[in-house]
């Protein structure tokens, strides 16, 4: 469904991502793990069209979409839940969801709003509250629900557990599991490697802007060097 080949993205003279190649098949849940500064967010933002890649190609559903704008990619079926959630804090929960479904017809949007209310009971209780008043966990659920409103073929999430208390991290991973059961295609960036590996079909490990390992959750969990890759082996 998504094929990324040789993707390189630069900030000025700095290559934040070098020669990244990955694929996501329909119905798969793919994890993207690695330490801070490894280039995970850069990878997602490049695929979502927020950053212009310096080299490489991105194709989605067999169509070359390298360099497309985010609004175009969303219409093609590719949605991103951005890092730090970035919900619209001055708008109500309902309005946040509505803007997520801006590309849909009014009738579809209305029926999807009902569906989200059912899928996320926490949000239903705060339907007309300004999103700025939500707790971290509620805000994360809103961000995911908002992205689902566009009925994406591929949903990308950037660090959905960031800054959440342990109990809420459980909520997020339960949600990922639910979405996986529904057969949705997910590409998830996570720092919480152990849990992400357990929750995904396959995973890629990034470090210093490069993909350094790939495999199924069990394969990667079994590898002894994973801990070192994660916390750094430079001085050890």
């Amino acid at each position: 469904m998504l094929e990324v080949a040789g993707l390189t993205t630069k900030y000025g003279a700095i290559s934040a991502l070098r020669d990244a190649t990955l694929t996501v098949g329909s119905g798969e849940v793919i994890g993207l793990i690695g330490p801070n500064g490894a280039g995970k967010t850069t990878l997602l933002n490049s695929v979502a069209g927020l950053l212009d890649p310096a080299a490489g190609s991105i194709s989605f559903d067999g169509v070359d979409v390298t360099g497309s704008s985010p609004e175009k990619l969303l219409r093609a079926g590719l949605a991103l839940v951005p890092e730090h959630r970035r919900i619209f804090t001055d708008m109500t929960v309902e309005e946040n969801l509505k803007i997520g479904g801006i590309t849909r017809s009014a009738a579809d949007r209305a029926s999807d709003l009902d569906e989200m209310a059912e899928l996320f009971p926490v949000l239903r209780d705060k339907w007309t509250t300004a999103a700025g008043f939500l707790s971290g966990g509620e805000a994360q659920q809103l961000a995911i629900a908002r992205a689902l409103m566009s009925r994406p073929k591929l949903l990308m999430m950037d660090e959905p557990s960031l800054g959440l208390a342990p109990i809420l991290v459980d909520v997020v991973f339960n949600l990922i599991a639910t979405l996986r059961e529904q057969g949705r295609t997910l590409l998830v960036v996570e720092q919480n490697a152990t849990r992400m590996l357990a929750a995904s079909d396959r995973a890629y490990v990034l470090r210093s802007g490069e993909i350094v390992a790939t495999g199924t959750g069990t394969e990667l969990s079994g590898r002894d060097d994973l801990f070192d890759t994660f916390v750094g082996g430079a001085g050890a």
């Binding site: 704008s69 609004e71 969303l74 219409r75 949605a79 951005p82 619209f88 803007i99 992205a147």
Partner: peptide
């Protein structure tokens, strides 16, 4: 209206609004 929502969204956070499909 959806236009108003898009406008407020773009004013609050232009990139995120585009991620939601708001046409810049």
């Amino acid at each position: 209206t959806m236009f108003g929502l898009a406008l407020r969204g773009a004013a609050a956070d232009f990139d995120t609004a585009r991620l939601m499909g708001v046409k810049s």
